[in-house]
């Protein structure tokens, strides 16, 4: 019986991933966050460091911009998933099924995260082509493991923010504003050392902070044992999932009470 449940859960996740990927292929938002934004952000970010005579920050700028692209893509397309479900009238129908809404959205968000790996590739490519930066990855295996963990973790963090989209159709505006502190606190747009000390605990709670450290160390070869950083990301992902589960239960109840599932 437990095996049957596991298979059923796997099928829901797998088919949610497939469904989302099919939908993404023809989404203009997806193309914008995956291809256009990374190019623009990389040019601005790397250019700022290079022309500020800080060429050592070139790699930092690229990994940071790549993570911004992954985060952006995950957050906005995850919000767009729920907005899309509202628009097509499927949100209340999937909520009427016995499957967990969190599980369905986890699958769909994960699909976005997988495809957003392209964004990281685009940032590296832009860095090489636009600024002729000699970018190599010293420890490809550590980089790859880190990237996979970060994508899973950012998916989980995106779900926490995504819960707001169930509650209200106007969540996009709030998330747009809440998005920027994540860039700054994670050290994706400016180095963490430039931020006041009191922001450190907040930074450490955000998975992109650790992702940036891992990717930089793996790319530059400056890191030692990566395992502790990997474990932090796994731990944070579990915390995000627990928070998301609690939030989804609550927002589902509030949305059913307010009768807003069909508003778009």
């Amino acid at each position: 019986m437990k095996m049957a449940n596991f298979r059923s859960t796997f099928r829901i996740l797998r088919n949610s991933v497939i469904l989302q990927m099919k939908s993404n292929v023809i989404s203009s938002d997806f193309i914008s966050t995956l291809f256009i934004q990374p190019v623009i952000f990389t040019i601005i970010s790397v250019g700022t460091y290079l022309y500020g005579n800080k060429p050592d920050f070139g790699l930092f700028a690229i990994t940071g911009t790549g993570l911004i692209a992954i985060w952006n893509n995950n957050l906005f397309t995850s919000g767009e998933i729920i907005r899309g479900e509202r628009r097509t009238g499927t949100l209340s129908l999937i909520m009427a099924t016995p499957s967990s809404l969190l599980l369905i959205l986890l699958g769909k968000s994960f699909a976005n995260a997988i495809t957003s790996v392209f964004a990281m590739g685009i940032t590296f490519l832009t860095g090489m082509l636009a600024f002729h930066l000699p970018i190599g990855i010293s420890n490809p295996l550590a980089f790859l493991i880190g990237l996979i963990l970060i994508i899973v973790s950012i998916t989980c963090l995106g779900l926490v923010f995504g819960s707001l989209f169930i509650l209200t159709r106007n969540a996009g505006e709030f998330v747009s504003v809440a998005n920027f502190p994540v860039y700054i606190l994670s050290g994706l747009s400016i180095p963490l050392t430039l931020l006041p000390l009191w922001t450190r605990p907040l930074s450490q709670f955000l998975t992109p902070t650790w992702g940036n450290i891992i990717l930089n160390e793996a790319a530059s070869g400056s890191g030692g044992n990566m395992l502790p950083n990997y474990l932090v990301i796994v731990g944070l992902s579990i915390i995000y999932l627990v928070i998301a589960r609690i939030l989804y239960k609550r927002v589902e109840y509030l949305a059913l009470r307010a009768g807003t599932l069909e508003q778009w």
Binding site: S8, R11, I12, N15, L19, K22, L93, I94, T97, P98, S99, I104
Partner: peptide
């Protein structure tokens, strides 16, 4: 067909 398949999965 894909719509029916997806809802079949959601209804387990």
């Amino acid at each position: 067909r894909d719509n029916l398949q997806y809802f079949a999965d959601l209804y387990k």
